[in-house]
Amino acid sequence: MLSTPPEYLSIAYRPDLDVLVARWLRQVTLPEMQQGYELLLEEAAQHRCRQWLIDVRRRFNTDREGAHWMLTDFLPRLQPRLGGYTHLAYLLAPVILRDAAADAAFPTANAFAGKPFMGERFIDEREAIEWLQAKRQG
């Protein structure tokens, strides 16, 4: 690991799966979220890993400003840095999928169309990893 993650984020590379696993440990501010994703990119670049499992079950505060930053600033930097198509599997608490505001903050499938990255939401970690593995194979 290149930098020590802050206390609100756990980052681990799983070489057996070639998956970067990030677990947000509490709610975060926008600057904390941005710092955390920068650390994820740093770690992913070290391993040339383009399959990410992002556990946001303890971080209930995805908002439009954070989603906008992800789509316009952060995600476009993945391909130049990692050299290929990146898949992000978001692990959410079931209640979040029923929250209209949280759902509206998560980019729609159209937001990923034609882009070198894709995100999908899951409530089951096994399904999220299976999706990442299938995307890596295909």
Rank of each mutant, 00 (worst) to 15 (best):
A44L: 05
T29N: 07
D73P: 00
E7L: 07
T72W: 07
V28I: 10
R57Y: 07
F74C: 01
D73S: 15
E38V: 01
Q34H: 00
A101S: 08
E65C: 05
V19W: 01
F117D: 09
R64S: 13
Q137W: 01
L25W: 03
R23T: 15
R26Q: 13
G66Y: 05
H47T: 04
W24Y: 09
E125A: 15
G66I: 04
D18Q: 09
R23C: 12
A109H: 12
L17F: 07
R48L: 10
Y13F: 15
T86G: 07
P31G: 05
A113C: 01
L97R: 12
E42P: 00
M1Y: 04
I123N: 08
Y90M: 11
Q27T: 02
W52E: 06
I129Y: 02
T72I: 09
E38H: 08
A93Y: 04
E130F: 03
D103H: 14
D103Q: 15
A113D: 12
E125P: 10
Q79I: 03
P31K: 09
Y37C: 08
P15N: 06
L30V: 02
V19G: 01
W131N: 03
A101D: 12
L39I: 05
F106G: 03
P94V: 06
A109Q: 15
A113V: 12
R98Q: 12
P15A: 11
R14I: 08
Q27E: 14
K135H: 06
P80E: 04
G84E: 01
G114L: 02
R126G: 12
P5T: 06
Y37H: 13
E32T: 06
F74H: 15
Y13Q: 01
L78V: 07
E43R: 04
L17D: 14
A128D: 05
R48Y: 04
G119Q: 03
P6E: 08
A111Y: 03
A128T: 03
P94H: 10
F122V: 04
C49L: 05
H68I: 02
Q27R: 11
I129V: 15
F112Q: 02
G83N: 07
F117R: 05
A101Q: 11
P107F: 08
L2G: 13
